[in-house]
Design a protein around this nucleic acid. Sequence first.
RNA 1: UGGGGUGUAGCUCAAUCGGCAGAGCGCCGCACUGUUAAUGCGGAUGUUGGUGGUUCGAGUCCACCCGCCCCAGCCA
Length: 431
Amino acid sequence: MSFARISELASHVGKSITVRGWVTHLRSSGKVAFIVMRDGTGILQSVLVKSQVTPEVWELFGTLTQEACIAVTGEVKADARQPGGHEIGLTDLAVIGTSPLDYPLQPKEHGVDHLLDNRHFWLRTPRQVAIARIRNEVEQAIHDFFYERGFLRVDTPILTAAIGERSGLFATEYFDEGNAYLAQTGQLYGEAAAAAFGKIYTFGPTFRAEKSKTRRHLTEFWMIEPEVAFNDSDDNMQLQEDMLIFLVQRVLERRQAELKEVERDLSKLEGIKGPFPRIDYTDAVATLQQKGSKVEWGDDLGAEDEALLVADYTTPIFVKNYPKEAKAFYMKENPADPRTVLCDDCLAPEGYGEIIGGSQREDDHDKILHRLREEKLPEAAYDWYLALRKYGTFPHSGFGLGLERTVAWICGIQHIRECIAFPRMMNRLKP
RNA sequence: UGGGGUGUAGCUCAAUCGGCAGAGCGCCGCACUGUUAAUGCGGAUGUUGGUGGUUCGAGUCCACCCGCCCCAGCCA
């Protein structure tokens, strides 16, 4: 007996083959019956004609339920009516795993709470499969992008001492060392690695114990953080732009079927070309004030302000050189305006908001120590980080790309919880 | 943590002014040889999120609590 995946059926037309998978739909017209099944590579309909199969097979069909795992055997026929272009004329049927009648998901609309409670089953639906494949394409494209450009991937620790961003930390006991914290960023390690390897990137999970309940936040999310020795802030933005264009192009080239499944407006993605506008924070504030915003110089830009700015553009935009107070301690002071730092937020179009935060890093030992103290951060935990500024300090820049936010934008998905297999949110630790 | 919603059958929702708790899907039975969320006919399915209160009478009004959703803040 020879087996095939649904995606491979084109090369088996006219032959008898066995396909294994899970029942998604059952239809019967008395003497003709249909089984629609899924195997992860596609959707396949098999046809049973009562007069052409054994009574045992016909009877077995009657016992099938949604999500039963089955093996169907029969001749592969080309059939233009079918989604995958093929159909099986069933001659034999076997049940690999039965499925009771109380399967929680039906082929119809469900509420999001129910879907999240049943995320382990929700993943089986066509839209979720498409999103997962696009995410996978984006991940692979990121690796390819950096590999082709001579970057080294560095895997940074997940258990850390208290370093990183200012917002909430997840803590756990760590032997005699006191508390360990789940990493909020790999950046500081990335900076150390950049002095060893020149161009590096990290790709890993990060954790924020923020009580955020918005469509753009998860407590556990995946971040990609390149760090490049001798890149200044402008080089940094160029790298971000090149990467985003590369990612969008790759998905357009290789994931047309999945983009169609998630009903993405392709013209929006096809319009993603450089150069992306680079707007100075100070100019952005002036523009926003003209548009009626109450924002004042020195404030961080809120979601409403960001949306107002982005509305004029069809590509991502950079907002650069924010006031020092609004940003992290490690960002380099702007020589042209010391009230500000050399940084950028990359805002995706269509209201998807910030997908990248980047900056040139402060490379002056005394300045960064001063900022550390201003922020009242635990100086001892940063001793090795400060030493990077002592032994061969170097100009360098990097950024953090939020993977789920990027996938949400590329897919046109409203909430990033659908862009990761098992989302972690304030109120979701299961499944 | 604040603001705004919402909670009724397994799921998605309806229930007029406070007056017999309903529909579709799914499920069960029957019919049907080409269905695409098949169709037609028949059937079973309820602690109306919880606790109290008002009332002759509460899914509906009031109070408190709980869950969930959306928005904001925090950020990627």
